[in-house]
């Protein structure tokens, strides 16, 4: 019984991988049966060949890394601004009354709606792509930081007053550690947003990257290249989320030690 229990999880995992392979098999059968035109739906064989060819020649690898770069820089800028602005608003009563509600007005604005504005002012440049990513990725970070800073246990506030902590000491010793889980959750959400917007920005600006690659491939009816790009983008989304989860567990390891 114990043995069975021990193998249960890996067995289910193996089963779900087999099911996924089954789906790929169905995809292959549909593609090669000619039910759907090969122009629209390349089989997995042609897609993986295009993927391998792109990776071997370094074309796709290059595009992959420029998308990673756009995504990371935009996200990083948004994190810096979001966390510091969130810390200011979260610790100041004035800012919560006068500034925070205006953020509520800006938040539902889709970041992609700023693309035409950004193009008008920044042109089809890398800075325009970074601006779009930064704007979109800012909100989850900002809101979760404010939430983390305002939800400090009241007794900790009292303790910090008795200890006469300065505002800076309060932020770094009490509020920031308390807000860390919220901030990390916000960072994870905004990393997803950053990837979505990196693709949009690259499509519209023509800046080098996977977004520009898939749009161009689609327009030239090179569907295996298009699908290869989409698969790489999915892989990038998966890897970045996994990396951040590890990072989160490492930063928050103190919570499980108690």
């Amino acid at each position: 019984m114990y043995m069975l229990h021990r193998f249960e999880r890996p067995l289910w995992f193996l089963g779900s991988v087999l099911v996924a392979l089954g789906f790929i098999g169905i995809w292959q059968i549909v593609a090669s049966s000619g039910l759907v035109s090969n122009v629209f739906l390349p089989g997995p064989d042609r897609t993986f060949r295009a993927l391998l060819a792109g990776l071997e020649s370094g074309v796709l690898t290059g595009k992959f890394f420029s998308t990673v770069q756009h995504m990371f820089y935009g996200w990083f800028i948004a994190s810096l601004i979001g966390i510091s602005l969130g810390a200011i608003i979260g610790t100041s009563r004035m800012a919560q009354v006068y500034v925070a509600p205006s953020l509520e007005l800006l938040r539902p604005l889709p970041a992609s709606a700023l693309v035409p504005v950004a193009i008008a002012f920044l042109g089809l440049s890398t800075s325009m792509v970074l601006f779009i990513i930064g704007f979109g990725a800012l909100w989850p970070m900002l809101l979760s930081t404010i939430h983390g800073f305002t939800s400090v246990e009241p007794r900790l506030n009292e303790v910090s007053r008795i200890l006469r902590l300065t505002k800076m000491q309060y932020i770094f010793k009490i509020a920031l550690p308390n807000a860390m889980p919220d901030i990390l959750a916000g960072m994870r959400l905004s990393l997803t947003v950053a990837l979505i917007l990196a693709v949009v920005g690259e499509m519209l600006s023509g800046q080098d990257g996977l977004g520009q690659w898939i749009l161009a491939s689609g327009r030239m009816f090179r569907s295996p290249d298009l699908f290869a790009g989409v698969i790489l983008l999915g892989a990038l989304g998966y890897m970045s989320a996994t990396l951040l989860t590890w990072f989160e567990q490492w930063v928050l390891r103190w919570r499980n030690e108690g």
């Binding site: 089963g15 779900s16 991988v17 996924a20 693709v199 689609g218 298009l226 989409v230």
Partner: peptide, 25 residues
């Protein structure tokens, strides 16, 4: 449990990456 892997493989694809596919089809 059987569909976990398939879902986790497709879900991280950014929705904007579907735009060229939908445009083509």
């Amino acid at each position: 449990k059987l569909l976990t892997f398939s879902i986790e493989a497709v879900r991280p694809i950014p929705p904007t990456a579907i735009i060229p596919v939908a445009l083509l089809v």
